[in-house]
Design a binder for these strands. Structure first.
Lengths: 122, 122
DNA sequence: GAATGCTGGTATCTGATGGATACCAAGTGC
DNA sequence: GCACTTGGTATCCATCAGATACCAGCATTC
């Protein structure tokens, strides 16, 4: 009778919802290679808005998957690192990114075939 | 110069966004054990609305991760199965669910500590 | 024979969310 | 003085998730 993600009330559902997230996957994947500063993340993950990035990082920090460290440079820089708990997750979610990159073409082909079939009147 | 999920224009980004989805993870996890009917999925994945389930299944079918088969019973039943492409993904995303179940408690504890620290005025 | 339940959906409405944009302070370089 | 850096927050709007209601066709129940 452990946790079960298929049960509506199980907290696992909340955790799953949190980690099954595009931006979280990309952030964790980057942090696997070492600490990264905020704007460095922002530049590397093309297309993230500041809002989504800081929001994602805040959630990850709350879940103890990432740690935040403000450094008294000028201007103040903020460095994000992965925690040991986060590392176990990062390995898992990074395989998601790798799957996406590996099978992107198959998926795109499938989509085109599907859309063509639909357009042809099924 | 292969696909790169960190590039804004790479189609991988779209694929990643699609598969990093709570409902898709839960659906694929179930279909790993064999074909399942629509309402059976609906009952097992507690809390999915019909809308989100049919929407998720339609997307998965478009991406050739799942196949839909209407069976002429009365009333007509619809059976969903996983494809060979879908199977490779399902194995990956199921480990996400497993991570969530395994580390749910650690994450919850971390959240409580974080919130307590914040409430204490940082 | 009318009421209820099953099947697998779609249509509609609303509250939450994602993303774009602008703005902030403090400091450096020109 | 003007532009640019740092890491954010505030605001606005379009999109989206979720709840609810509805649909047809048939079986069972009362």
């Amino acid at each position: 009778m452990g946790p079960n993600a298929y049960a509506a009330t199980c907290p696992t559902r909340l955790v799953l919802d949190r980690i099954a997230d595009k931006w979280a996957v990309l952030v964790l994947g980057l942090l696997l290679d070492g600490p990264v500063r905020f704007n460095q993340l922002r530049r590397t993950i093309e297309g993230v808005s500041q809002k989504m990035l800081s929001q994602t990082l805040k959630s990850l920090e709350r879940d103890d998957l990432v740690t935040r460290k403000a450094i008294a440079t000028v201007p103040v820089t903020v460095e994000y690192s992965i925690t040991s708990l986060g590392k176990t997750l990062a390995v898992t979610v990074d395989s998601l990114r790798i799957w996406a990159e590996a099978h992107m073409e198959s998926v795109q082909d499938a989509q085109q075939r599907y859309d063509a079939r639909k357009a042809a009147g099924l």
